[in-house]
Design a protein around this nucleic acid. Structure first.
Lengths: 203, 203, 203, 203
DNA sequence: TATGAATGAGGGTTCATTCAT
DNA sequence: TATGAATGAACCCTCATTCAT
């Protein structure tokens, strides 16, 4: 009897995880609303009704997918923040860590990108709103510290810059294919180069 | 002389346009799939069935919203391209025009952002795929010309830069609020400043 | 102000009749239930709502079509019966008259064939049941008289023979095309020949 | 091993067959268009939505009813034809077989009679048109052979005779009640007697 | 006479979910 | 653990009908 069981029964966590990954993939491909539980079941090799042995509901699968992703994301971010690097290095580390999470949770990120705004207003998904708030706080603070330290331009509209950075990084999940030649670190390096120095030729 | 006229090209464009704008707003707020025709009808002040006097289907409303937006977008882009500006000014003009379209078609852009990928595979929405392709072509060409002319950095991964630009601009529709202090031109200017010169302090 | 108006207004009986004939044609082609008033209106060159200036309802059109046909049919039959011919000639005259009515009311007969059974149970269409009953009575009587007079075979199951005759004649409406080479009288003659003498070679 | 099985070929043929027979009965009673799936479900003792576990659509029920009937009909006809009887016996055997099918598939025949013409133009129901064509061919050929063999009258308009026979037999489904005193064979015998020798008294 | 816009009831269908086996 | 059958609410859409103009 495992101690940390999320919901429903769970004698074989392997099958459970397998189904959840299938669900994540299909949600990412077709959108949450457009995905039927039957489709998930088909792809996972069981019947629709059988899903309910493993999960309480379609929504609970979604919740588990998103919270699993965010938990790991914040674990990574917290490690970065704990290192107390200077602003520029912090930003670089956050961006790199983000691309690593995109690499590991591509489906979850894609789902997040598409559904988070509408989900966040539901009590059940309040953790999305919480995460967004803390996210904004962390990034804005880093930018502010960077401006103070003359690492970033002083003439920036910081809220705009924050959104610019945030979007820049996360929408990559919509086209990024793991194992496609570029490692997350390589992509991060290129993004950082553009974000920090611009695409215009110097001089 | 009544003849057999389909609802699509019916007269009285006032009510029609009103309903279509209502639909766009609700689609943008709740997502296309999650929006019921009843909800649209409620907000437009008629009964669900009455929508079908003006439109053939829920899907045809979506199509009209998206194609209307893309038509205007391309009208603007074509004007920019016809001016044959140098690469940097072309890019600036395209970005500015994009923010203007976001300003005028905020709902349509938000819908596009969320639904385009899944819609584009349907024959009915093939125009989305066409537009995407031409879009990529126009932007990539501008970037390439800019690199040749030494206006843009030579060390860029152009496909990556293209995506970076594209996403950066269009996701703005998800948070941009018209009449919120910033004009589309102002936002465009700030974005261009970041994109071209980066956010790092010079030197 | 004409004295005999069936229902609704009727300033121009020509248009009315035109619409009714259109309705009959479409009902016959597509079936009553499968026919929409809009289809009728389209074919008649006006809008669906405008039909209601001429008729109370879709059902009232159907009623008028069927009762008009039955009225004429019975006028013809009554004339035949009034002549008090011998059984065989009566039967021949009834068959011939039937084919004449099929010729003149092809659409109505086709509708009747397809819809009468289900309609007859409705109070509004009680006249269909009445007509059927009188129809059966007239034909059965003629057959009985014929058997008594040794004009028809004595070993017939008369109810079966009645149905045989009835069906034989009326289903012709489903394939009979007016103006198609055969006059009603010619068809009647051939049918009578088969019905009376059979298709087997004599001897 | 669930795999993706369409509802059509689902297991448990008992309930399925039961529902299909219910549907056939209601279609026959009320007409296909006038029958709601809710009505079928009510009569079968489940909810409307539950029908879709067993069948893809209302139309697929209709298709299965009609094709099931036609398959058995042709099995019977083919057996008759394989016996290579002389024309008169072939005709008698075909008529008898027809009445047997009417006896076994009364509802399907009634539906066929009422709906076939309009259905046959749809691609899905092309098998109806195919069957009709083959039907005509078989009967006409039998009649022609009979005329050549001097079994049938030489002065017949064969197409007329074919329609006469065809309609005469099949409309019987509209009034024939199984278990009503007459066996299919008895009815066939009487019909054949009328069709072959006529109803007029000999001499 | 006819139109244009709307109504409202109902239709076929989908789908997340339940539960006895 | 999984199945098969069913539920019930909701969905998109159709259509006969109404009515002010």
């Amino acid at each position: 009897m495992p101690s940390t069981q999320r919901s429903s029964q769970s004698a074989s966590p392997a099958r459970r995880r397998e189904i959840l990954e299938t669900a994540a993939r299909v949600f990412a491909e077709q959108g949450y609303n457009a995905t039927t539980v039957r489709k998930i079941a088909d792809e996972a090799g069981l019947l629709a009704g059988s899903l309910y042995y493993h999960f309480d509901s379609k929504e609970s699968m979604l919740e588990e997918i998103l919270s699993g992703f965010l938990d790991e994301l914040w674990a990574g971010y917290d490690e970065v923040l704990a290192a107390r690097l200077d602003p520029k290095d912090t930003l670089a580390a956050l961006v790199t860590e983000s691309f690593r999470e995109i690499d590991r949770h591509r489906d979850a990120v894609a789902i997040y990108q598409k559904e988070a705004r509408q989900l966040a207003v539901q009590p059940r998904f309040a953790f999305l709103a919480d995460s967004q708030q803390r996210f904004e706080q962390v990034w804005l603070e880093t930018l502010e510290r960077g401006v103070s330290a003359h690492a970033f331009r002083a003439d920036l509209d910081l809220r705009l810059a924050y959104r610019f950075l945030r979007d820049t990084v996360w929408v990559a999940a919509s086209w990024y294919r793991p194992g496609g030649g570029h490692s997350p670190e390589q992509i991060a390096r290129q993004y950082l180069s553009m974000v920090l120095d611009g695409i215009a030729a110097p001089g």
